[in-house]
Nucleic acid binder design. Structure first.
Lengths: 159, 159
DNA sequence: GTAATTGCAAAGGATTTGCAACAGT
DNA sequence: ACTGTTGCAAATCCTTTGCAATTAC
């Protein structure tokens, strides 16, 4: 029912021990559909009765990212967030509102195709992607907020 | 000859003072074609005889990013880098090698079109973009390095 | 003149690291 | 048994902040 067996497989193939803590961290990330901060991951571990140190969480997340099962995100908050890539959410992007901080996922298959094509053209072997678009979300625009500066919203074309 | 006048214009329109330090930081970023760290920016300021505090550099970079003239990057080094967006480099992406850390720019006009289209479809007003693809560069592949894990290089499709 | 910025040093906060005790193979 | 991991706390490092002196308008 869970995807943890894939992480176990990854660890074995890398010759790394499968520990209870690693499985617990993976389980928490795999069972959440949101973008989890390290703090949130720790909270869920505690809620589940796990006694996992912060350093171990960071060390396990690094492996999960390397395995390709989990993606690391930066929404400009000063810390990273993590989300698994199972289900209907392969390499996807995010729209991040500068005003309210809301995050909307972009699931556009064309992005991945384009990314793969361009990378391959350069002889590059892609393993993970990060696409983030910052700006103003619909509700903040409706609420009357405006972009910082309209004068040169697209400086390149005007120069 | 320089693009600093655009930043001056931005500051005036925002009702913010145009200071010597702000112009100096902008000048350094505008005159470099690379991806500068804050440390590198400070070094160039010192080399140019400027006496600008670190805090002012951070504060000015924040304005430059908001103005849309400069982009903030994160290549997974633990700190941010900055680059201007003039010339032939509007909103562009990067290929980052996990092995050697090399960074290659992707200038594919189609990316911006696709990004704008998808954002607009969601009622989102985009102001800045971030596209980063991690993996292995051509030379590291030639040198025999392989992706961390080939078993599930694309876990989503195989699950 | 008034209001905002600067620079310094101190604070803050996320992430990493050292090391003795411990768990996986 | 051996090797690698865990957990704690200390250390690290980037970035932000407080505040008196200074500068732009």
């Amino acid at each position: 029912m869970s995807y943890v067996h894939l992480f176990r497989r990854y660890l074995r193939e890398q010759g790394l021990p499968v520990t209870q803590q690693r499985e617990a961290v993976a389980e928490v990330v795999f069972q959440s559909e949101g973008h989890l901060s390290v703090e949130e991951i720790e909270a869920r571990l505690r809620a589940g009765g796990e006694r996992t140190g912060k350093a171990t969480v960071y060390r396990t997340l690094e492996m999960l990212v390397k395995s390709g099962l989990v993606a690391e995100r930066d929404f400009g908050e000063g810390f990273k967030r993590y989300e698994h890539l199972f289900g209907q959410r392969p390499a996807h992007g995010h729209l991040i509102c500068d005003e309210c901080g809301s995050v909307t996922e972009i699931h556009e298959a064309e992005f991945k195709r384009l990314q793969d094509r361009v990378a391959t053209e350069q002889g590059f072997a892609p393993s993970r992607y990060r696409l983030e678009i910052f700006g103003l979300c619909q509700s903040c625009r409706a609420a009357g907020h405006a972009l910082e500066w309209k004068g040169l919203s697209c400086p390149i074309e005007t120069v």
